[in-house]
Simulated assay, not measured.
Amino acid sequence: MYKTECPYCNLLADPEQQIIFENATCAYIQKPSEQQVLEGSGLIVPKRHVQDVFSLTAEEWNDTRELLLKTKTFLEERHGHDGYSVGWNTGKTGGQSIPHAHLHVIPRFLDEPHAGKGIRHWIKQQDNRRNS
């Protein structure tokens, strides 16, 4: 399936978007403008338009894993980072702003202001408690 209005179905429509590498079903992409705050960050996206991580095929899962390991090597050769945040946002409430599955791969550095704060840090704050 292909969606003409989906930026991840049209990776080359954005002249800034860079496909770093790809395999049969997925691509690892980076945008230079996003490197100023999230140095080395990028996304692994399936080539097929698929709304969320739960809709990936077994082949897309395997190809995502293959690119994740290749991305790790790529990033370790270029950045002196100290860890990673890796994750999927799914659905609007889960923080997904583009309805095409994409895996965030974000190198983390000891000298960044939020070092040591993982993916769950922001959602487990007391001010995020539900009113039930």
Rank of each mutant, 00 (worst) to 15 (best):
Leu12Val: 06
Thr64Asp: 10
Leu68Tyr: 11
Ala101Leu: 01
Glu59Ile: 15
Leu38Phe: 08
Leu110Pro: 01
Leu67Val: 05
Leu43Asp: 04
Asp63Arg: 05
Leu69Ile: 10
Gln96Phe: 07
Leu68Gly: 14
Ser55Tyr: 06
Gly87Arg: 00
Ser33Gln: 15
Asp127Asn: 15
Asn131Ile: 08
Gln51Trp: 10
Leu43Thr: 08
Trp61Gly: 05
Gln17Met: 13
Glu5Gln: 14
Ser132Gln: 14
Leu38Ala: 12
Glu59Trp: 10
Tyr2Asn: 12
Val45Leu: 09
Ile44Asp: 07
Arg48Cys: 12
Thr25Asp: 11
Gly40Asp: 04
Trp88Ala: 03
Ala13Leu: 10
Gln125Asn: 09
Pro107His: 04
Leu67Trp: 05
Lys72Asp: 13
Gln51Ile: 14
Tyr8Pro: 13
Ser55Glu: 15
Asn89Leu: 08
Gly83Glu: 08
Thr90Met: 13
Glu66Arg: 11
Tyr28Phe: 13
Trp88His: 06
Arg129Gln: 12
Thr90Lys: 08
Ser85Ile: 01
Gln125Leu: 15
Ile44Tyr: 03
Pro32Gln: 11
Asp14Ile: 00
Asp14Lys: 09
Arg78Ala: 09
Gln36Phe: 06
Val105Asp: 00
Phe21Trp: 06
Asp63Trp: 03
Gly94Asn: 06
Gly94Trp: 00
Pro15Gly: 09
Ala24Val: 13
Lys47His: 15
His100Glu: 01
His100Asp: 04
Val37Lys: 09
Gln96Tyr: 08
Leu38Lys: 02
Asn128Ser: 15
Ala58Asn: 14
Ser33Ile: 09
Arg65Gly: 01
Ala115Pro: 10
Pro15Thr: 08
Arg78Cys: 09
Glu39Ala: 14
His79Trp: 13
Asn23Leu: 04
Ile119Pro: 09
Leu103Asn: 03
Arg78Ser: 10
Ser41Pro: 05
Gly91Met: 11
Thr90Ala: 13
Pro46Gly: 07
Arg108Ser: 03
Asn23Tyr: 04
Tyr84Asn: 00
Phe54Leu: 15
Lys70Phe: 02
Ile106Val: 15
Ile20Pro: 03
Phe109Cys: 00
Leu75Gly: 05
Ser97Leu: 05
Leu56Phe: 14
Lys70Tyr: 02
Ala115Tyr: 07
Ala58Ser: 12
Asp127Pro: 03
Glu66Cys: 13
Lys117Asp: 11
His121Thr: 11
Glu60Ile: 07
Ala24Trp: 06
Arg65Leu: 09
Val105Ile: 08
His79Ala: 02
Gln51Met: 14
Gly118Val: 00
Tyr2Pro: 03
Glu5Val: 02
Arg48Gly: 06
Glu59Cys: 15
Gly116Trp: 00
Trp88Gly: 00
His100Gln: 06
Gln51Asn: 12
Leu75Trp: 02
Phe74Thr: 02
Val45His: 11
Ile44Arg: 00
Val105Trp: 01
Phe54Gly: 15
Cys6Lys: 02
Thr93Leu: 08
Arg65Lys: 10
Gly95Ala: 07
Gly40Pro: 06
Asp82Gln: 10
His102Ser: 05
Thr90Val: 12
Pro46Thr: 04
Glu112Gly: 07
Ala58Gln: 12
Lys70Glu: 10
Thr73Gly: 03
Pro15His: 11
Thr90Asn: 14
Gly116Ile: 00
Leu110Ile: 04
Gln125Ala: 15
Leu56Val: 13
Gly95Met: 01
Tyr28Lys: 02
Pro46Tyr: 02
Ala101Arg: 02
Thr73Asp: 13
